[in-house]
């Protein structure tokens, strides 16, 4: 069964006709040549397909494209204007927050979404008092990023990169 839908990918509206079984991840990678979101597990367990959907971090592999008609999808490629880098991308470079790089676009999109959630005052599982405004320290960052696995285990520098962005040490 085919469906025709529009995805606004990195600011560009694109109308496409796909099988209803197509995930947002496959629509991006196989139909729209947006290959920065990666297919790791394809079952919602690794986070490498993380994109922003209408500004919030989600897993593209568990999202059916047909259910996202009209939605704005932002991949790591679309976080900053053409030719520029987002502060989180700069921080990942400066902190050496990756090794093989496969999980990195998902880590970066997840970090961007996570920083917005923290700025909005969302608590986490390690916030001592769930009713109090959270303080984004290394423990909080690690917990909030737990949905993104890195098999090279670059976690220490990923947390450092995000910590620097949060502290305003990296210009956006």
């Amino acid at each position: 069964m085919d469906a025709t839908l529009t995805l606004v990918v990195d600011g560009r509206p694109t109308t496409l006709t796909v099988d209803t079984r197509t995930t947002v991840l496959d629509a991006l990678r196989e139909h729209l040549d947006a290959t920065s979101p990666k297919k790791g597990c394809d079952h919602g367990q690794c986070g490498s397909c993380t994109v922003l959907c209408n500004g919030r971090r989600v897993l593209a592999c568990l999202s059916l494209a047909v259910a996202h008609d009209g939605d704005e999808i932002t991949t790591a490629e679309g976080l900053a204007p053409e030719g520029e880098r987002h502060a989180v991308q700069v921080a990942f470079l400066e902190a050496d927050a990756y090794q093989c790089g496969y999980c990195t676009p998902g880590q970066i999109c997840s970090a961007v979404g996570m920083l917005d959630e923290a700025a909005a005052g969302h608590p986490s599982a390690v916030s001592g008092d769930v009713a109090a405004p959270p303080t984004l320290d290394r423990t909080e960052i690690a917990e909030r990023m737990s949905g993104n696995l890195c098999r090279c285990a670059a976690y220490v520098n990923i947390v450092t990169a995000i910590e620097r962005v949060h502290a305003g040490e990296t210009a956006r």
Binding site: V58, M114, E117, P123, V130, M145
Partner: peptide
């Protein structure tokens, strides 16, 4: 639901349970 002010203040068990489930991405979905 986990971020809602009344849930956090009046039903902390619910906010804590939600935050200990899944990941940030999955909780957004």
């Amino acid at each position: 639901l986990a971020a809602h002010g009344r849930v956090r203040a009046e039903y902390p068990v619910l906010a804590e349970a939600l935050l200990q489930g899944a990941s940030g991405q999955l909780r957004n979905m």
